Measured scan of single mutants.
Amino acid sequence: GPIITTQVTIPKDLAGSIIGKGGQRIKQIRHESGASIKIDEPLEGSEDRIITITGTQDQIQNAQYLLQNSVKQY
């Protein structure tokens, strides 16, 4: 399918649970989903961080599912 980009906003407090120790968790999510995932640095004074996910519809759905699971375990 076509490559698309979607953005998800997360509270910055949850960023740690998604990134994992030394970036292990986010690497695993990238690997498992096949999507490209970029977590922006939090904006000055903002409570949120923006996650940019790029890939096919399937890859993005996979990545979103894995991201949600990471947050739930936290």
Rank of each mutant, 00 (worst) to 15 (best):
N62F: 03
R25E: 14
I29R: 01
E32T: 08
I37T: 02
K72R: 11
I18W: 06
D13I: 09
D48V: 11
S46M: 07
N69W: 02
R30L: 12
S36M: 15
G16V: 07
I53H: 00
T52Q: 15
K38W: 04
Q7K: 12
L67R: 00
D40N: 09
A63C: 06
Y65E: 15
I37Y: 01
T5R: 01
T9C: 07
Q24K: 15
I39H: 08
I19F: 07
I19R: 09
R25D: 06
S17A: 13
S33Q: 01
K72W: 02
G20I: 15
G34K: 06
R25G: 11
I37E: 00
Q59W: 00
Q24N: 14
A15E: 05
G45N: 04
Q73C: 14
I3H: 06
L43Q: 08
I29S: 03
I3N: 12
P2M: 14
Y65G: 15
Q28H: 05
I37Q: 00
T52W: 10
A35M: 00
P42Q: 09
I4E: 02
L43I: 08
Q28V: 05
R49Q: 10
I26R: 07
N69P: 08
Q59I: 03
S46N: 11
Q24M: 10
Q7I: 02
I3W: 01
Q24E: 09
I53S: 01
R49D: 06
D48K: 11
K72F: 02
R25A: 14
Q24G: 09
T6I: 02
I18Y: 10
I29F: 05
S70R: 11
T9E: 12
H31A: 09
D40G: 09
Y74T: 15
P11T: 05
I29L: 10
S46V: 09
S36G: 11
I50C: 13
T56H: 12
T56C: 05
Y74H: 15
Q7H: 15
T54Y: 08
S33E: 01
I37C: 06
Q61L: 04
L67P: 00
P11D: 09
G1L: 03
G23V: 06
A63Q: 00
G1C: 08
T52G: 04
Q68T: 06
I4V: 05
K72S: 12
K12G: 04
E41A: 08
G1N: 13
Q57Y: 09
G20Y: 12
I51R: 00
R25Y: 04
R25F: 05
E44V: 08
I4C: 06
K12I: 13
T6A: 03
I51A: 13
Q64N: 11
Q61S: 12
Q59H: 05
G34W: 01
H31T: 12
I26S: 06
L43H: 07
G1R: 01
Y74Q: 15
V71P: 04
I39M: 15
I26Y: 04
G22Y: 11
I60F: 01
E47I: 12
D40E: 15
K27F: 08
V71E: 14
S46Q: 14
K12Q: 11
G16W: 09
P42K: 13
T9I: 04
L43Y: 03
I18G: 04
Q24R: 14
G23W: 07
N69Y: 03
A35F: 00
Y74C: 14
L14F: 05
T5W: 00
G34N: 06
I51Y: 11
R49V: 13
S17M: 11
S17C: 03
Q68R: 08
V8W: 03
I50P: 06
L43W: 04
